[in-house]
């Protein structure tokens, strides 16, 4: 289905696409039909910089299973790092 599941979060960081680094300040996260990934539904993340064209976003489409594994991997890495940063 077209789920319309969309979440947004502000963040601080940078992302690289087409060989160029850019600041990003927003992530739009959805679980819906992807554009390119060969799965029925994907975790879709658009990293954007408010005020910049949507075509400059850095986009990810991950299978739902891959997304869960990535989240766990990221959490493990952050836990290993500990507090601060």
């Amino acid at each position: 289905m077209c789920s319309y599941v969309v979440e947004k979060t502000a963040l601080t960081g940078s992302a690289k696409a087409a060989g160029t680094w850019s600041p990003i300040n927003t992530a739009v996260v959805s679980v819906d039909h992807p554009f390119h990934a060969p799965v029925e539904h994907a975790l879709i993340v658009d990293f954007t910089n408010a005020g910049r064209p949507v075509s400059e976003r850095v986009a990810l489409e991950l299978s739902v299973a891959s997304a869960r594994e990535l989240i766990a991997c990221m959490q493990t890495a952050l836990d290993a790092f500990g507090e601060g940063g």
Partner: peptide, 20 residues
Amino acid sequence: RFGPDLSTDDAAAAARAGGW
């Protein structure tokens, strides 16, 4: 209205971010 000349995937991204 999200951008008449956007590619299909960019327009869909704009729609997601903009509330469809």
